[in-house]
Design a protein around this nucleic acid. Sequence first.
DNA 1: TACATTTACATCGTACACGATATAATTGTA
DNA 2: TACAATTATATCGTGTACGATGTAAATGTA
Lengths: 142, 142
Amino acid sequence: MSEESEVLKLERQLCFPLYTASRLTTQCYQPILQELNLTYPQYLVMLVLWEKNNLSLSDIAQKLFLQSNTLTPLLKRMEELGLLTRTRSKQDERSICISLTETGEKLKIQAEQVPSRLTQQISLTRDEAIQLHTLLYKLIQG
Amino acid sequence: MSEESEVLKLERQLCFPLYTASRLTTQCYQPILQELNLTYPQYLVMLVLWEKNNLSLSDIAQKLFLQSNTLTPLLKRMEELGLLTRTRSKQDERSICISLTETGEKLKIQAEQVPSRLTQQISLTRDEAIQLHTLLYKLIQG
DNA sequence: TACATTTACATCGTACACGATATAATTGTA
DNA sequence: TACAATTATATCGTGTACGATGTAAATGTA
């Protein structure tokens, strides 16, 4: 009934396993992050800020490949959770400075266990994970 | 100021490049799919149905690793677009049968050019793409 | 055959993503 | 210095994702 069209087969697309692997991996994080009361995108913001505190929205946006339309409400929710503060920069009134609160800083200690707990759930060898990591960054930066 | 915590560095995580590669790849599709008046998840549903028509919602759900909470509204929108019909199955009144309309079938012809147009934009060699494909499926199926 | 269990969808609420657009501050330039 | 262009963030609307829950049909079982 359906014509042969190899190029349109779902399993042949690169996009589909990317989309699915991303979603399923995020789902693996969910129960772990729930203990920290964080969503996955919120966790990413925390990773950025734990590495370097007091960044502007655009700094975070650049690191996460996101924009203000996604980040503004995300950061507002995180402010309401008491994880960070959003203050207008003195040097440039357009810019806002995102700073971790003490609560936000302290959450890092609990978060230290997250990566290893996730690695345990993943069905890739260490070498495969490295290989995948390399290929994904090549795709992203291309 | 921020303590050294190698395990929590953003660039070390596997999840982040997965999430980003998925989003950026979807963004590559967007202008191409706009010509077909499809969103990316809608395109995935079409890929499934072009391969095999007259599937139940749960068949599609299984292939795309989605559930009714996502698929029901998605399929309703596609029905409104005139791409498919949703009819209760006679054999099992709980099940709905998703069938392509003629419009939906015909869209396949236009879609044939999508994969190659995307491949051109991707910064991976053929071998790397195959390698990535294999690793992602291993991750998904694990 | 009653009835508990399972299955297939649907609905609801929350939180992203993201294109389009708005707004105010800063910068470049005639 | 006026004023156009740029930049940083915010807002809005639409469309996913997905956990939790609801509902009705089908199935298993005593």
